[in-house]
Design a protein around this nucleic acid. Structure first.
Lengths: 200, 200, 200, 200
DNA sequence: AATGAATGAGGATTCATTCAT
DNA sequence: TATGAATGAATCCTCATTCAT
């Protein structure tokens, strides 16, 4: 299996760095090869073409991203706690990996429609996590019972994505993690059933 | 003023059509010129370069987009009604202009970082509208008084943007306008101060 | 019509020279452009791609080649005289244009099957000339009446082609024209009806 | 001696198959290695480089080709009978080995000048056979006494080669062997001394 | 003898922009 | 103003060959 060979990961890591530093369109295959310490041709022993590098990069990194969120979610019990854990881990992972944040929020979006369709496939795993939290919340009675799950997950993903993108475009000059609590408050508040003046 | 000459708008309209039909990367200057009915060189009498066409396109179309939302907002009184008007008009305008929706939600995002910085400038006018609604809502006592405006506007824009993008990527196969009410509910609910069991 | 513009012929002439001097595989488009005194991109205003240069080259040069043979044939009366004229002109034209001879006999044969199919189309005009001579000869009673025309034209073309190729591969060190008479004798002799001891 | 080891012939046979099936330019060394059931590197234990494979292929196959023609020639007495035997065997061997016919008539011609010079060396053995027949014919008095042997062998080889190539390019759709008699007639007729009306 | 992972040189083509008319 | 022919920089990928094992 090629994906387990050291050079596979070596090339993907080089790709993240090169793209983050040079931008998507200035990231030539030869630059990635050089950074990875392999010959240009070696790239093609592990990837079909340049696009395949990018798709694989997203699959690999986003796969880990989702797995880590999932494992933290599992440590929590209530839907609301899980929601907070998702937001916190979403922000934490990108805050801790500046290069990856630049690549996923800015550079990879410059790809063509075909590539973005494949990226969307990977994101389905993320959306499934959100769906589970929402469903649990509705069963618990915490969240409003008539939520349109397909819509609300777009609210949640759209919100988090926009906040991270803004942070990246502002050159990551402020603390992304600090936003987690407030973001959670607004979203959670929007989903909950309110029985009394709970927001002092 | 070049912006008032007929060929200026003629070229921008051609650009929207060409980009919507061919995609960002297959939209050569020569194709836009042909669709606009002018020579390639003529483009450069009205625009500095290709990027300038795209920025101008965004400024022109998004300027109108924002103006129309603003005028509808002004017809409403309460912050919550204004919020609904904003969401409704945001969706309505893109639902009514399929080509523009494709261009703003998908194709123009493939531009480089530099272009997207300029696009963000144009969006400041939109965010100002949101800010005003939020401020009014807090003054009214409708919205929670400690809202972080800079954060909440990202929640709102991120949500609306994600929902429209999903609709475009699903080839606009369902009715975007139908989502307005539910989206407004979730956002509004998240911003409001809740004093009693109002959600049955 | 692009074929009548000066740069069209300019590029084809450059292609003949470059291919003759460097060989087919070492004849980069940029080399042809340089020799033609135009930019690389200009080539593509006149030709679809590199293969199109080669096909056009063959069509243009071989078209003239065939026309000239035809006009000399027309100046002769008997089939046998016409046969001699064909052989003589076939040799003469290639003997007078060393570069073209190298290109048609050696370099262009290195092309792929697709290109050679197109080249074969052009050669049909040549074969038609041969056919006419043979038919006339049979009607005249000069040539044997039961000749298989499709076969004999292969004998004639194969013979002339092989002789020219040999001459080119021997670096054109001897006089090709001198061979015309003897070649004509063998071919003509093979086609004729012999009624008495005519070959002393 | 490498030439007698089983892998040597194994690789050459694989080369013929691969080239016939894929065409000259799509016949990578790795493809030949795979078909031969050896590793890429193993090829270089038996051949200096790719060109050496092709030259060796031609030498090996053409050597057998010539030997077989020679042995059949030897079974005949008169020059004219020998000429017929040569033509018949030339056609027969290629008709019976479709792959080899494709390789020698079409694919190997796409090689560069250098390779074709080496191929020509191999063909000298063939031309020697022709020379012997011509010389015998002239001594016998069957063939015209003043034949330019070097020229006539080009007539003969050029004719046969062209006829086989046409047959291959027409996808071997008709019976090549059927042509032998008529071809022999035309060539033989062209070489003979004619003393009376022998062609009815 | 045999392997096969790794190497790295090399080239056709596109398209934003210019400038002589 | 308007034209459009001409420019030329820039890059992904293939594949013959090597060499450590």
């Amino acid at each position: 299996m090629k994906k387990n060979k050291p050079k596979y990961k070596q090339i993907l890591d080089a790709a993240v760095e090169v793209i983050a530093e040079n931008g998507y369109h200035a990231s030539q295959v030869s630059k990635i090869a050089k950074k990875a310490g392999v010959a240009d041709g070696t790239i093609y022993l592990y990837f079909d073409n340049k696009e395949d590098i990018l798709v694989s990069l997203f699959q690999e990194k986003m796969g880990q991203f989702i797995e880590r969120i999932e494992s933290v979610i599992d440590e929590n019990d209530t839907a609301d706690e899980k929601l907070y854990a998702l937001i916190e881990m979403h922000f934490r992972q990108l805050a801790e990996n500046h290069h990856l944040a630049i690549v996923t929020q800015l550079e990879l979006r410059q790809s063509n429609k075909n590539l973005r369709m494949k990226i969307n496939d990977v994101l389905k795993g993320y959306l499934a996590l959100v769906d589970n939290i929402l469903t649990q919340g509705m069963e618990e009675g915490t969240f409003h019972g008539h939520l349109n799950v397909k819509l609300v997950r777009q609210v949640i993903f759209g919100t988090l994505d926009e906040i991270v993108t803004n942070w990246v475009m502002k050159d990551q000059r402020y603390d992304l993690m600090e936003q987690a609590e407030e973001v959670h408050f607004v979203i959670s508040n929007g989903l909950k059933i309110h029985s009394n003046k709970e927001l002092a």
